[in-house]
Design a protein around this nucleic acid. Sequence first.
DNA 1: TACACTCGAGTTC
DNA 2: AGAACTCGAGTGT
Lengths: 316, 316
Amino acid sequence: MSIYNRFITSAESLVTTHEETRAGFLSIALEKNRVGDPFVKNALAFKAMAAHTCRAEDLLNLPEVRPFLITAAGLSDKSLSYLDEDDQTMAIKELIDKFLKPSGEAYIDEATFRYLLIKGDAVGGAMRNKIGVLGQERFIRAIYSSMSVRGMVCDCVSTNSKYWREIDGNDAGTETNVKALHWRNTRGERILVFNSKIPTVNKNVDICLFSSGIADYDGIVRHDERAIMFGELKGGIDPAGADEHWKTGNSALNRIRESFTKAGYPKIKTSFIGAAIQHSMAEEIYKQLEDGTLSNASNLTNNNQLIEYCNWLIEL
Amino acid sequence: MSIYNRFITSAESLVTTHEETRAGFLSIALEKNRVGDPFVKNALAFKAMAAHTCRAEDLLNLPEVRPFLITAAGLSDKSLSYLDEDDQTMAIKELIDKFLKPSGEAYIDEATFRYLLIKGDAVGGAMRNKIGVLGQERFIRAIYSSMSVRGMVCDCVSTNSKYWREIDGNDAGTETNVKALHWRNTRGERILVFNSKIPTVNKNVDICLFSSGIADYDGIVRHDERAIMFGELKGGIDPAGADEHWKTGNSALNRIRESFTKAGYPKIKTSFIGAAIQHSMAEEIYKQLEDGTLSNASNLTNNNQLIEYCNWLIEL
DNA sequence: TACACTCGAGTTC
DNA sequence: AGAACTCGAGTGT
């Protein structure tokens, strides 16, 4: 089977360049500084609130700093879903006994420092979500760009709205908060839905293409017979995570194929877009493209490949 | 096909209990405090080193604080592999101009706070590695326990040594830094290797069982004909990560099966041990146990299941 | 030494 | 409310 994407000429052509990796890490650093800002402010606020206390134990009498202390005690917000009030109180007491008291007069600094260390992990988590969102936006800009060249009209519905509006690809920001896009190609109307739970798979899917008009958008994900293509999109640039996330994506794609085959639609198309692609996984992707397991793919950081992918997607 | 593990009576029996999840998150918090300690100390040391400076720019004249500033600028150690000296210097200058100067006299606190935020992400990373190691140790203790009941003798080679020594399962700490175990069962000698790259798969595998004596240990991973079973071990307890990591593990296991089938050994056994198992993935695991795709499995937090798994492993 | 392992910090559906 | 999405912070082979 020949590969649809003219810019995938070999497994190697899928691999991310060093320069793209570098650029990715630099932009992460910049963004991380911004995301961290509120926590720096919180730390300063805590210092002010605690300034009039004399000893570590006094902090227990300030209910307004309890959330701060819970964090300083090493508890992530995530963990709080599994811990009750007593667990949290116990953690705070441990913090005071094992770390704040021993630091003597510097107990406020000690608490502040520990708060920041723990919130640093939180900043990392928030960043990872943001990186994913930025990847989707990059993909959507490529779609607009491909459509713009053809003079196509595209409608959009946002994550935070129920109304469709026509997109002007030149407007800044139109790639943010996109829940779904709609357009018309030579074969009919198409709706591309992002991050949606597909009942047949019982899992969320990054990219979901259906044959549908806007009027049928509600509940379209239940119409297996209208489903055309599903795709996984991985926006991260870390080479160390590349194979890890490809393995996850590959399992997710297999679940999609198995579910749709079982539901009587074995011809469902699948595709993969990744920003971090390493040699070894590129070989696997290339093989899957050759044997038809994957219908298309692209390196998100390779514009030619990405636009070619979008051209294919739009005309599917 | 019937399931080897008597304590896997249904998909449900694989699912992790809330109490185990709670305990896991609590122990993460405790450990995180310990791992964070050195960074708190670094922060204090920086404050002392910078105390005699008057303005943010003065920090540029202190070469010994450059690594500290690189971190404060938002650059992870990981990212440094992709960034050159100039990139790093540029990041530091951004830090000074955008964050330190605007904070006026508080520039030392500002730098310290940002350092801690970034290192907090590092602490998180180190923790995740540690959690993985603790999972392996828990598994090894179960193996010792199972052997101890049978009065079996077990030899061990550490990650940091080339010499085998006999294990006394009652000695504390013998489960740490284990690279491989050796024992003899009714069918012959067995060596269980941890975290080893298997040439045939060209990937690292968590648990690798071979038919081999100690004398043949070197290079045993190249002997496909001696390979008996490969397993994935996931020590994390976060329910939110459970399906994610099962997908990864499932892909890894598929690669093992495919590689060994291609190499002429289609009967290679595979297994999965996970600490965080959710309902939906439990169904998939259970199905794979029923149809023989997986030879065995266990929830790492369920002692009956785990011991039963070890009994099976030891006698394979 | 390049490559791929560890896993949970967030968020969203 | 519960399940599963985002991805890179470490580490080791």
